[in-house]
């Protein structure tokens, strides 16, 4: 499935097996999105949370 980048209008390809919470990025501008699957299994993209100071392994 393809979605358009809200920033640069680039085409973001979302893998078929993508899970909600997975991160995809725009190949043109690099902006990151979080995949959100709805109950009807359609896919939406929301801006990914920026990396926090306490993030890590």
């Amino acid at each position: 499935m393809d979605k358009k980048c809200s920033d640069c209008d680039g085409t973001i390809v979302i893998p078929d097996d993508a899970l909600s919470g997975e991160i995809v990025s725009c190949p043109d501008c690099g902006l990151e999105y979080e995949v959100a699957k709805t109950r009807s299994n359609s896919v939406e993209l929301k801006p990914a949370e920026p990396v926090g100071e306490d993030w890590g392994e």
Binding site: D17, L19, G21, E22, I23, E34, V35, A48, E49
Partner: peptide, 8 residues
């Protein structure tokens, strides 16, 4: 809070 390669 984020699905990485590992969670998948």
């Amino acid at each position: 809070d984020r699905i990485r390669w590992e969670e998948k």
